Amino acid sequence: MAKAIPRVFTSSYHGLCTFHIMQNAAKHLSPVKDKDNEECEEEDECEEDNEESHILKDFSACMYGFEDKTTFEEAFDIMRSKVRKQTWLDSIYKVKEKWAECYMRNVYTLGVRSTQLSESFNNALKNHLKSDFDIVRFLKHFERTVQEKRDKELEAEFEARKKIPRRLMSTPMLMQASKVYTPAIFEAFQSEYERSMAACSKVLDGNTYGIAIGSLNGDSFEEERIVTCDPSKQIVSCSCGMFSRTGILCAHGLKVLDLINTKTLPAHYILPRWTREACKGNIQDSQGMNNICCNKPAAARQTIPFLLYLFQLVS
């Protein structure tokens, strides 16, 4: 699968499911405890077990906590020295570009780092499918599953049109975002906007700023980020890379937009896929042809015959 993906999906990035990696880490790195939970007989053994009990936290930090590759390498080497059997660590290290945060900072993941979406659909299929179904019965049950998903989509669309998301404050940017974004995306955006209100800034050089976000009690600050901007084009670029990964502008960028007196969110920071109008307009395939099925409103879409769909994938 790993060899086939770059050949077939040439413009994609193959990442590994972080949930399953952590499951494997717990299996290979967790300390082995006695069934009776007896106390260690020697103090050295207790200290060793205490060290191993923190291995999973160390591994999680390597997966999510380090943005600098050098820092990641140092932390991984320290963690490796605490592990008795290093076979699994060595094998997972070889594919670190597929799971470590510092190697995926510019990967367009939309915040998805696990296979939960596909597994959720697989589970929905299992509710209607049996291994002894013939192809006709399979297609009927497959379409039933797809229809259930579309019904839920219609319900979500109806709720989004009927209700305006709750705003923590009334500002031009939040008013704009609540009308444009879907409720779920607006909540994520509003969280970043709220964080930007607690940010401190300093001018580093011309249109370059250092932005640090304070905690709620104001006694500590997150790591400082470097944000460059072009006031004439209302463009900001942050070292955290959040927008390039998720399509939602980060609190650091929002702070700088406020500093240059930009009170509404520029259009180039509103991705169509996150808006209420995402189902409208034309969607094209890899050959530049309009996808007729996806161009229709959600209520009017018809299920693509599954065999035709498979044929298109093969061809």
Rank of each mutant, 00 (worst) to 15 (best):
C40Y: 08
Y93A: 12
K140G: 10
V180I: 15
L271D: 12
P297H: 08
A177T: 03
E74I: 14
S131P: 01
P183Y: 00
F243G: 13
V314Y: 10
E194K: 11
N295Y: 03
K57R: 13
L310E: 05
K98A: 12
V256H: 04
E277G: 05
V8P: 06
G288D: 02
L139N: 11
L168Y: 10
V136W: 11
E47I: 06
V236F: 03
K98F: 14
Q234W: 03
D36P: 09
M104T: 12
C62I: 14
K35A: 12
A160M: 02
A300Y: 05
I235K: 15
N123G: 04
K33M: 13
D49W: 05
R150K: 14
S114I: 00
N282K: 11
S131E: 06
C46F: 02
K149Y: 04
T70D: 05
T182M: 12
N127Q: 13
N282Y: 09
A2L: 05
K163W: 03
A156Y: 14
E39T: 06
N291S: 07
F66V: 02
T182W: 02
L265E: 03
S191L: 12
A298T: 09
G15M: 11
L129H: 00
L313E: 10
R84G: 00
I248T: 11
Q86G: 01
I164N: 08
A278K: 14
C200R: 08
M1P: 01
V256G: 06
E39K: 04
S232C: 10
A278H: 15
G288E: 03
D77V: 10
T264H: 11
D58K: 14
E148P: 13
N295M: 15
N290E: 07
H20W: 02
S239F: 10
D36K: 13
I292L: 11
K149F: 02
A212M: 00
A188L: 08
K255M: 02
L216Y: 06
G281S: 01
Y193N: 10
A100R: 04
S244G: 10
A75T: 11
I21A: 11
T70I: 12
R273G: 04
R105N: 15
R276M: 12
E47G: 07
C250Y: 08
Y13E: 12
V95C: 15
S81A: 13
S118I: 07
I78P: 01
T171L: 12
Q234R: 08
L257P: 15
V83R: 12
E187G: 07
C102Q: 03
T10G: 06
E101V: 03
I213R: 04
M173P: 05
C293E: 15
V180K: 14
I213S: 02
P165N: 11
N291A: 10
K96D: 07
E119N: 07
I55V: 09
E155R: 07
K35G: 13
K57E: 13
C102S: 08
F72I: 00
E223F: 02
G288I: 06
L129F: 01
C240K: 08
Q284V: 01
H128E: 08
I55G: 15
Q116N: 13
L110R: 04
A156W: 14
A298G: 00
G65Y: 05
D77P: 01
W99C: 04
Q312K: 08
P6Q: 10
K149T: 03
